Simulated scan of single mutants.
Amino acid sequence: MSAVEVMRLPLAVDLGGFVSLLRRLNVPFRVSEESGEQVLWVPSPQLAEEVRTLYQRFPEGDPDFALATEPVRRSPGFVGQLRASWMTAAVLLVTLVVAAVTLLGNNLATLHWLTFQEFQVEGDYAVFTPLMESLAAGQWWRLFTPMLIHFGWLHLAMNGMWYWELGRRIEYRQGGPMLLVLSLGFGLVSNVVQFSVSGASLFGGLSGVLYGLLGHCWIFQLLAPTPAFRLPRGVVAMMLIWLLICLSGVIDLLGFGSIANGAHIGGLVAGCATGLIGGLLARRG
């Protein structure tokens, strides 16, 4: 990279505290020794100016760096949040439209177009068309659209809330297109795994995608820490505990409906894999 000189200091000056501060802030830099001086370098002129200002304020480093260096700014309004998270909002909007069109899974006339397998109701039974027949007919969208189907307001509200929370983090750190690619990829994996586990059945929801986004943020953060992926304490543990509870069958026994455990596990494994790849690439970069 083309390095920009930030400042030159005598060798007697202890830069240890300030260097630790830069590392904790994830600032790319290097220090070299030239002509009896230590020279601090960064990749860009703009960053160089910011680092100079930071050194003027905290030459010895600062244990409360997050508070000390956080600029005072107004919290963006709702419109501002939508602009900053337009892809997250777009996915949620499509999900809401599908919920309205399918009447939260009660309108079978529209629901059958979005399920993993096409089906027809004959009496009290749903007769499913083999998946390969639907794909051969060009209905490839069925591999993804179950992620948009929700059964009930609580199902929709919980999934929507978590997608807004996790999706915005990934969009902020890696961009809207990457969030879309990850969402579709996790949706595909979770749908295929759920189908392989449950066979012909009705299933849907963003929960498989959510576990994918969670796994992505979790592993990425372990390998290449970034403020965007720093989840509140206990979130990962809570989601994993909930996954174990669902796997135990307690939810089914209590009569709260069937849980798509295959989708959850498939999404989580896929998310951990992408988080591993993304974290390693970011760490190398």
Rank of each mutant, 00 (worst) to 15 (best):
E34P: 01
V269A: 15
G61I: 13
F203A: 05
G80H: 05
G17F: 01
A260W: 00
A126M: 08
V19A: 14
L154I: 15
A68P: 08
M158V: 15
G123K: 01
S183D: 03
S32V: 06
L213V: 04
T69F: 11
H264M: 12
P45S: 09
L131S: 15
F195I: 01
L21E: 02
W164P: 00
V209L: 04
A66C: 04
L222Y: 01
T53S: 08
W86M: 06
L154C: 11
F18C: 11
S85E: 11
L188I: 08
V79H: 03
P10S: 14
F203I: 09
G215Q: 10
G279C: 10
A224T: 01
V51Q: 05
I170E: 12
L184E: 05
L166S: 02
L154H: 14
L154F: 15
Q56C: 00
S44K: 01
A109D: 13
Y172D: 15
R230N: 13
Q120Y: 06
I245L: 15
L21T: 01
W141L: 14
V51D: 03
E60C: 05
T145R: 06
G175Q: 12
A136F: 01
S201T: 12
E60S: 13
G285T: 00
L188K: 04
L166M: 13
I170C: 09
R169L: 06
M87C: 07
W162A: 14
V42N: 04
S2Y: 10
V94Q: 04
R23D: 11
L240A: 06
W140D: 06
I170W: 13
V209M: 01
R284Y: 07
F186W: 08
W41R: 06
S190V: 00
R283F: 07
A109Q: 06
G255K: 14
S85N: 15
P177E: 10
V27N: 05
P232Y: 14
Y125L: 08
A89V: 07
R283H: 12
A136N: 09
A68I: 06
L156C: 13
I251A: 07
L210T: 03
T69G: 03
P177Q: 10
L96N: 11
